[in-house]
Design a protein around this nucleic acid. Sequence first.
DNA 1: TGCACGATAATCT
DNA 2: GATTATCGTGCAA
Length: 201
Amino acid sequence: MHRYRRLRRKELPIDTRELARFLIGKALVHDSPNGRMSGRIVETEAYGVGDAAAHSFRGMTPRNRSLFLEHGHAYVYFIYGTWFCLNVSGEAEGVGGGVLLRALDPAEGADLMLRRRPGAPLHKLACGPGCLATALGIGKRHDGVDLCAPGELWLGAPDRRWAPPSIGRSVRIGITKEAHRPLRFFERGNPCVSGPRGLLR
DNA sequence: TGCACGATAATCT
DNA sequence: GATTATCGTGCAA
């Protein structure tokens, strides 16, 4: 049985890029009505201040307002008519920025995740931001949730049995603006990381 | 293993 | 009306 401690807001860096790196190897936990689903965060991307690829770049709108909440809040958006994606806000209140969670290495509740992603092998259950949200049952109702407060969706400290990650860095995936900036972070050698093989260094 | 491509709808211009 | 921080399929090699 895994036992996680909730991360306190004080422990999170107040800087989107630092937070993206910090979150590799931490836990994401969803205590759903059907039971707990959790996993080790193995891939993130930073979308911070002054970044033309960030949803927050052009200021606050009804869609992106959660990115302007104090660091440690969830920003959930819907994309391509099909998928949800989960971000963690990364700046002080009123300053926009967020970390896109791209992949998890499933720990608890893989059976529950599999129910939402039938047929997926374990290493592809929560591989890619859309799949991650689907597997964990994350949707618009989680937009604006405080991930450091008591609630069903939260960030956890690493399980003590987990080895500390070796962290790799690369350009981000699926964007055209600011495409050259190395703002993607991932755990080296973890099979659950998404994206082309060429980006695995 | 590595691409090209279509599905699909909210959001913004 | 254009754009999009995606994914799964299909086809080539």
